[in-house]
Protein backbone atom coordinates (compact mmCIF):
# COMPACT_ATOMS: atom_id res chain seq x y z
CA UNK A 1 0.00 0.00 0.00
CA UNK A 2 1.32 3.37 -0.87
CA UNK A 3 0.17 6.92 -0.45
CA UNK A 4 -0.98 8.52 -3.66
CA UNK A 5 -2.11 11.90 -4.85
CA UNK A 6 -5.71 11.00 -4.16
CA UNK A 7 -5.03 10.50 -0.47
CA UNK A 8 -3.45 13.88 -0.05
CA UNK A 9 -6.24 15.53 -1.97
CA UNK A 10 -8.82 13.83 0.21
CA UNK A 11 -7.09 15.06 3.36
CA UNK A 12 -6.91 18.54 1.95
CA UNK A 13 -10.59 18.34 1.11
CA UNK A 14 -11.45 17.34 4.67
CA UNK A 15 -9.34 20.09 6.19
CA UNK A 16 -10.86 22.58 3.77
CA UNK A 17 -14.32 21.39 4.75
CA UNK A 18 -13.50 21.84 8.44
CA UNK A 19 -12.20 25.30 7.65
CA UNK A 20 -15.41 26.15 5.87
CA UNK A 21 -17.48 24.86 8.76
CA UNK A 22 -15.50 26.91 11.25
CA UNK A 23 -15.62 30.05 9.11
CA UNK A 24 -19.32 29.77 8.56
CA UNK A 25 -20.53 28.78 11.96
CA UNK A 26 -18.45 30.58 14.55
CA UNK A 27 -19.83 33.70 16.10
CA UNK A 28 -16.56 35.37 16.92
CA UNK A 29 -14.85 37.18 14.03
CA UNK A 30 -11.46 35.90 15.19
CA UNK A 31 -12.71 32.32 15.04
CA UNK A 32 -13.91 32.95 11.52
CA UNK A 33 -10.41 34.00 10.63
CA UNK A 34 -9.14 30.75 12.09
CA UNK A 35 -11.41 28.88 9.73
CA UNK A 36 -10.00 30.82 6.81
CA UNK A 37 -6.48 29.91 7.87
CA UNK A 38 -7.43 26.24 7.89
CA UNK A 39 -8.83 26.61 4.38
CA UNK A 40 -5.59 28.19 3.20
CA UNK A 41 -3.63 25.38 4.77
CA UNK A 42 -5.66 22.89 2.81
CA UNK A 43 -4.90 24.83 -0.34
CA UNK A 44 -1.21 24.65 0.44
CA UNK A 45 -1.41 20.92 0.93
CA UNK A 46 -3.07 20.57 -2.45
CA UNK A 47 -0.44 22.68 -4.16
CA UNK A 48 2.39 20.74 -2.60
CA UNK A 49 0.92 17.35 -3.38
CA UNK A 50 0.36 18.30 -6.99
CA UNK A 51 3.92 19.55 -7.04
CA UNK A 52 5.07 16.21 -5.77
CA UNK A 53 2.92 13.82 -7.77
CA UNK A 54 1.65 15.47 -10.91
CA UNK A 55 3.16 14.44 -14.20
CA UNK A 56 1.45 17.11 -16.19
CA UNK A 57 4.50 19.35 -16.06
CA UNK A 58 5.93 20.11 -19.43
CA UNK A 59 9.61 20.54 -20.16
CA UNK A 60 9.45 24.27 -19.37
CA UNK A 61 7.51 23.86 -16.17
CA UNK A 62 9.24 23.53 -12.89
CA UNK A 63 7.30 21.24 -10.51
CA UNK A 64 8.45 23.33 -7.58
CA UNK A 65 6.30 26.19 -8.87
CA UNK A 66 3.77 24.78 -6.44
CA UNK A 67 6.14 25.56 -3.61
CA UNK A 68 6.53 29.12 -4.82
CA UNK A 69 2.79 29.41 -4.96
CA UNK A 70 2.63 28.31 -1.35
CA UNK A 71 5.15 30.96 -0.35
CA UNK A 72 2.86 33.60 -1.77
CA UNK A 73 -0.17 32.09 -0.08
CA UNK A 74 1.66 32.26 3.24
CA UNK A 75 2.56 35.90 2.66
CA UNK A 76 -0.94 36.89 1.71
CA UNK A 77 -2.45 34.95 4.59
CA UNK A 78 -0.23 36.79 7.03
CA UNK A 79 -1.07 40.18 5.56
CA UNK A 80 -4.76 39.38 5.53
CA UNK A 81 -4.64 38.23 9.13
CA UNK A 82 -2.93 41.44 10.21
CA UNK A 83 -5.52 43.63 8.55
CA UNK A 84 -8.37 41.46 9.76
CA UNK A 85 -7.25 41.66 13.34
CA UNK A 86 -6.79 45.41 13.12
CA UNK A 87 -10.30 45.62 11.80
CA UNK A 88 -11.63 43.41 14.56
CA UNK A 89 -10.02 45.76 17.08
CA UNK A 90 -11.56 48.74 15.31
CA UNK A 91 -15.01 47.17 15.39
CA UNK A 92 -14.50 46.23 18.99
CA UNK A 93 -13.79 49.85 19.88
CA UNK A 94 -16.99 50.97 18.25
CA UNK A 95 -19.27 48.17 19.44
CA UNK A 96 -17.50 46.42 22.29
CA UNK A 97 -18.10 43.16 20.52
CA UNK A 98 -16.73 41.12 17.65
CA UNK A 99 -19.70 38.78 17.53
CA UNK A 100 -20.89 38.62 13.98
CA UNK A 101 -24.41 37.93 15.17
CA UNK A 102 -24.46 41.43 16.52
CA UNK A 103 -22.59 43.18 13.75
CA UNK A 104 -25.54 43.58 11.50
CA UNK A 105 -26.34 47.25 11.45
CA UNK A 106 -26.19 47.17 7.68
CA UNK A 107 -28.68 44.76 6.26
CA UNK A 108 -31.54 44.10 3.87
Amino acid sequence: MSVELGHYLAVSGIVFGIGVAVALSKRNAIAVLMGVELMLNAVNLTLLSFSRFSTAFGPDDEPLTGHVFVVFVLTVAAAEAAVALAMAVLVYRRRETVDLDRINLLRW
Partner: peptide, 8 residues
Protein backbone atom coordinates in the same frame (compact mmCIF):
# COMPACT_ATOMS: atom_id res chain seq x y z
CA UNK B 1 -33.72 36.04 5.03
CA UNK B 2 -30.79 36.34 2.67
CA UNK B 3 -29.41 39.79 3.28
CA UNK B 4 -29.52 39.56 7.05
CA UNK B 5 -26.51 41.74 7.61
CA UNK B 6 -24.58 38.91 9.14
CA UNK B 7 -21.48 38.17 7.19
CA UNK B 8 -21.96 34.43 7.55
Amino acid sequence: RVQTGQMQ
